[in-house]
Design a protein around this nucleic acid. Structure first.
Length: 371
DNA sequence: CGATTTTGACCCGCGC
DNA sequence: GCGCGGGTCAAAATCG
């Protein structure tokens, strides 16, 4: 299971700017490990042009690596959906101890073009009453809702829903096409915050969880959260608003933990030093097993999000690979003692034969069968 | 008892 | 136009 000696984090981000047509893609690796010969400061990465050739040189990446993010090309509007994880490009991290990350195009990243269906009006305001069974909306069809910036990252984890400091409420779950794993939809519970996120397990590599964020938090981190990252970092690192944050990516990067930009770090022992905030936190909350996963992840996602806002990249694919740490199963086991749920008589259910939401139980059986 | 999760139905864009 | 599939709603169930 987990190797508690190694707390390295390896980040890879693919920035995609398709304004030029052929979308220039690049993949960046941020590693605290010296054993990674291709190490390069993220700051430098960000300042470098989005030229894959140079990146290849800098990181020693093979050109084929870009295939990992194959979804970027030729996808102006249509993206590779989670279910279409066809490309079996797999990539092996050249770092110690870790993690082979194999997956294809950032699955969960994005799929649909712009469906303006989200944010449907709750309660039918007025409109001719009629079948107001559900959210009938009177939305202008003309204007397409501008999609909020999205970004996704992959985390090797046994828990699906990683703690990231914010409070989320699950509002849906859907089966992913061609994948035995469901996709869960979460919304930030803070009022007036429209941030959403989707969580799904990679079909290619079940140990990898793909989290896709959409939107930006317009509020500070809740402080009441158990093990919240709030309070662990200086305020500047927790500001949710990009306006309040560093003006440039490298500035933000400079605020990141040492182990992420300290080239002199020693591999495999990141946890020992230059880790003050986390170490302290670790002592304070020893039982918080996900610490190692969460903190850097959150920092990085915030970071990437800000980068996205400062640039005109349309897509940013981020991978966060971490050594497995804790095996905390966050699955709620159904209570067998309770009576089965009954069909609501007043709510007519017209099953049109379309398989929509997939229950955990169903999926579980599928998994078992496939194992 | 309020908050959160579960989960079938509904909505809607898109491809055929 | 139809059907597929992603995304969302919302009532009931469950949790804390």
């Amino acid at each position: 299971m987990s190797d508690h000696e190694f707390r390295d984090f390896y980040y890879q981000a693919a920035f995609h700017n398709d304004q030029q047509g052929v979308g220039e893609t690049g993949m960046y690796r941020v590693s605290s490990s010296l054993q990674d010969p291709s190490y390069m400061s993220f700051t430098d990465c960000l300042h470098s042009s989005m030229d894959y050739g140079s990146l290849e040189k800098a990181f020693g990446l093979s050109p084929s690596s870009s295939e990992v993010f194959s979804s970027v090309e030729g996808n102006q509007t249509k993206q590779v959906g989670a279910g279409d994880l066809g490309g079996n490009t797999s990539e092996v991290m050249t770092t110690p101890n870790s993690s082979v990350s194999s997956s294809s195009s950032e699955a969960g990243c994005e799929e649909d073009s712009d469906k303006s269906k989200k944010d449907r009006q709750p309660k039918g305001s007025e409109d001719g009453g009629e079948s107001s069974k559900k959210g009938n909306k009177a939305k202008k069809k003309g204007e397409k809702k501008q999609r909020e910036p999205r970004f996704a990252f992959m985390t090797k984890s046994e828990v699906d829903h990683l703690e990231d400091g914010y409070r989320w409420r699950k509002y849906g779950q859907k089966a992913v096409k061609n994948s035995p794993y469901p996709r869960s939809y979460y919304r930030c519970t803070t009022q007036k915050c429209t941030v959403k996120k989707r969580v799904e397990r990679s079909f290619q590599d079940p140990s990898v969880v793909i989290t896709t964020y959409e939107g930006q938090h317009n509020h500070p981190l809740p402080t009441t959260l158990r093990g919240s990252a709030a309070g662990l970092f200086p305020p500047s690192m927790l500001t949710p608003s990009p306006l309040a944050g560093p003006s440039f990516p490298h500035e933000l990067f400079m605020q990141m933990p040492h182990h992420m930009n300290n080239q002199a770090g020693s591999a495999g022992s990141m946890f020992a030093e230059s880790f003050s905030p986390f170490q302290q936190y670790h002592h304070q909350v020893p039982d918080y097993g996900l610490l190692q996963d969460i903190v850097p992840s959150r920092l990085f996602t915030d970071f990437v999000q800000r980068v996205a806002l400062k640039t005109n990249f349309k897509e940013i694919h981020v991978r966060i690979l971490t050594p497995k740490t804790e095996s905390k199963i966050a699955t709620r086991k159904p209570n067998p003692t309770t009576a089965p749920r009954q069909q609501q008589p007043w709510r007519e259910r017209k099953n049109k034969g379309r398989a929509k939401t997939t229950s955990y139980r169903t999926l579980f059986s599928i998994l078992q069968a496939s194992c």
